[in-house]
């Protein structure tokens, strides 16, 4: 299988006067359609790594190649477009726009492309809501949904532009265990059916063990990188 994403010798240092190095020479490759988990204790650098993977942050040194394109020399504007077209994000705190309905939130990444919103596009958003089991709630404002429902809307939203990569930061971090289970089943289904590459950050080993590959980060270095199942 081809690599969808490659990290070459990534380091990240914060601060100018007092320097804090968070990542030390990370080399990683992610295969197309794979389901990966990154685990590590808080402060290990895993969130920094995810931010760099998602082009939300730039590495101090090293290269990130996404879908055969080196992102180092891209402008902020080009990175925004890349994020919009190729990546989906799921955050721990859902981050839906509370001023918009579930359906409008799902449509948002598409509307950012500035392409006209056709009936087919709306149908697609409705299908995604159906996929996450929320077709009945499409006209509810985000705050009128439960935590698990909001996270499922966020997942539907992250899929709107058919991203190649889906990055998730503790996607079930503040959900109860039943909901957590449902969300993971959903993510795996999407991975199987749409072939989307998943990179999920979690501190929950139980969850991580369900991934194809487990990468453990410790003190800014790769401590463990094992294939869980093939």
């Amino acid at each position: 299988m081809d690599n969808i994403m490659e990290l070459k010798n990534i380091t990240k240092t914060y601060g100018t006067k007092i320097k804090t190095q968070v990542l030390f020479g990370i080399d990683l490759e992610f295969k197309k359609g794979s389901f990966n988990s990154i685990i590590g204790q808080s402060g290990s650098g895993k969130s920094t790594l995810l931010n760099i993977l998602g082009t939300l942050d730039r590495p101090t040194e090293g290269e990130i190649i996404i879908d055969s394109v080196n992102t180092n020399r891209m402008s902020e504007k080009e990175l925004s477009t890349l994020r919009n077209r190729a990546m989906g994000f799921i955050f721990q705190f859902h981050y839906l726009l509370p001023e918009f309905t579930a359906l409008e939130n799902v449509l948002m990444p598409y509307r950012i492309t500035k392409k006209p919103v056709t009936d087919e596009v709306i149908q697609k958003a409705q299908d995604l809501l159906k996929l996450v089991g929320l077709e009945k709630y499409q006209n509810n404002l985000a705050p009128n949904l439960s935590g698990g429902q909001q996270q499922r809307v966020a997942i539907a939203r992250s899929l709107m532009n058919d991203p190649k990569i889906l990055l998730a930061d503790e996607p079930t971090g503040n959900l109860d265990s039943d909901t957590t289970e449902q969300i993971y089943e959903l993510l795996r289904t999407i991975n199987r059916e749409l072939g989307t590459t998943f990179i999920i950050i979690t501190h929950d080993r139980h969850i991580a063990e369900k991934a194809d590959r487990i990468i453990e980060i410790k003190d800014g270095r790769i401590y463990l990188d094992i294939m869980n199942r093939l």
């Binding site: 902020e76 504007k77 925004s80 477009t81 919009n84 994000f89 981050y95 948002m108 950012i112 939203r157």
Partner: peptide, 16 residues
Amino acid sequence: SKQIGILKAMGIQNID
């Protein structure tokens, strides 16, 4: 700022 942040993660341009 939360909403602006999430819009930016989704790829909204600074100008917009």
